[in-house]
Computed example of a mutant assay.
Amino acid sequence: MIKLRNVPLIAMLIVTLAGCGGEAAARPGEPETLELRYQGSVGAVTFPELAEDLGYLAPVKLKWIGNTISGPQDIQAAATGQTDFGGAFNGAIIKLAAAKAPIKAVIGYYGSDKDSYIGYFVPDGSPIKGPRDLIGKKIGVNTLGAHLEAVLKEYLKRGGLTPDEIKQVEPVVVPPVNTEQALRQGQIDVAALSGVLRDKALQRGGIRPLFKDIDLFGPFTAGSYVFTDRFVKRNPNTTKKFVEAVARAIEWTQTHSREEYVARAKEIIARRGRSEDTTAIGFWKSSGVAGTGGVIDPKEFQIWIDWLQREGEIKPGQVRAQDLFTNAYNPFGGNR
């Protein structure tokens, strides 16, 4: 798995590889390319997949090339031309852009609210009660350099830990499906859990929340889909079709019942024939996307720019929020 900390090396590849998806001459207003390569998620339905199933994406079609559990890896795959688009935590997008990757966020696609949030859990008998108790402890996360690690470090900072003390708290990469087990077996001290994995773990009992991301930030959209600048330039109509379709799919989940979404998602999983278990979909509660149709709010990038500057990950002024995203293709958004 490519880790975000390798972004300077990744950026060197982008000049020759970015935007290598299929391109074809198109009539005015028609999509330039009719196929978009992407990575999916096991047992889940992404918004582009939902958009295609609802008929919003036609005549453009998706081409699944595999699955990923890492947002940073997903956007790196898009930046280097292995896929046509990818999605990740906004902080990961900022770091990749700071490494000179020519990418543009076009629509928000996941976030946290009272129903969909990241929780950091400890066993009921754990002596861990607050931030300072995490010094010297291991915290299970799905990938480094992304949402879960950023929220953890913000929690530690607000808890009064010094930079040297924060370095003594160890994020450990654990596959999401194994995180609960790793916590119960004592391999990690804290488990970051969300969605069905969180809800199933809570059903089984024996764990309690230490904190949640919404405790720190309130409801917020956390991640966005990106294209390379080159792809957008060469395929403006395809980009517009994609964003409009995904925006409508997000709005569909925001205006339809949970039961309607679950039923539709189960049908999609069954039809695509990837030998997946649909149990997780039954626990779906909300998209977590704050803005209607995934419209991006500048503060959803600025908050992480400020954080990365404080962490010394990027230099002041190195990245500007207005350069990272656009709402221009979103039918629910403004002019940015």
Rank of each mutant, 00 (worst) to 15 (best):
Pro48Val: 03
Val7Asp: 13
Tyr120Ile: 03
Gly293Thr: 11
Ile314Val: 06
Pro59Asn: 03
Ala146Arg: 14
Gln309Tyr: 01
Phe211Ala: 12
Arg37Trp: 01
Gly294Ala: 02
Pro28Tyr: 00
Gly71Cys: 06
Val45Gly: 13
Gly206Asn: 03
Leu193Gln: 10
Gly29Glu: 06
Ala26Trp: 00
Lys61Val: 06
Ala78Cys: 09
Ala25Met: 08
Asn335Gly: 11
Leu216Arg: 07
Glu30Ile: 10
Gln302Arg: 05
Leu34Ala: 12
Phe211Cys: 12
Asn335Ala: 13
Ile314Leu: 08
Thr83Lys: 03
Ile166Asn: 08
Asp189Glu: 04
Arg272Met: 02
Asn67His: 12
Val262Trp: 01
Gln322Phe: 02
Ala280Lys: 08
Ser116Gln: 14
Gly273Ala: 06
Gly218Val: 12
Val172Thr: 12
Ala88Glu: 05
Ala92Trp: 00
Gly159Arg: 03
Gly86Gln: 10
Leu36Ser: 04
Gly333Asn: 08
Tyr120Thr: 06
Phe231Thr: 14
Glu180Ser: 15
Ile75Ser: 11
Lys167Val: 04
Gly223Thr: 11
Gly22Pro: 14
Pro127Val: 01
Lys100His: 06
Lys138Ile: 01
Asn235Lys: 07
Ala101Trp: 04
Tyr109Lys: 11
Ile214Phe: 03
Gly334Glu: 09
Lys200Leu: 05
Lys138Asp: 11
Gly293Ser: 09
Lys266Arg: 05
Asp323Met: 05
Tyr56Ile: 08
Thr80Gln: 13
Ile14Phe: 05
Gly140Ile: 00
Gly293His: 01
Gln302Glu: 10
Gly186Met: 06
Lys167Ser: 11
Asp124Cys: 07
Ala25Arg: 11
Asn6Tyr: 07
Pro209Gln: 00
Ala97Cys: 11
His147Phe: 10
Arg198Tyr: 00
Pro127Leu: 01
Gly119Ala: 06
Trp307Arg: 07
Leu62Cys: 11
Ala201Pro: 15
Asp297Trp: 04
Ile135His: 04
Arg271His: 07
Asp53Ser: 15
Ile188Gln: 12
Ala18Pro: 15
Val289Pro: 13
Tyr38Lys: 13
Gly288Leu: 12
Asp115Arg: 02
Gly21Glu: 10
Glu35Thr: 12
Gly273Val: 01
Asn330Glu: 05
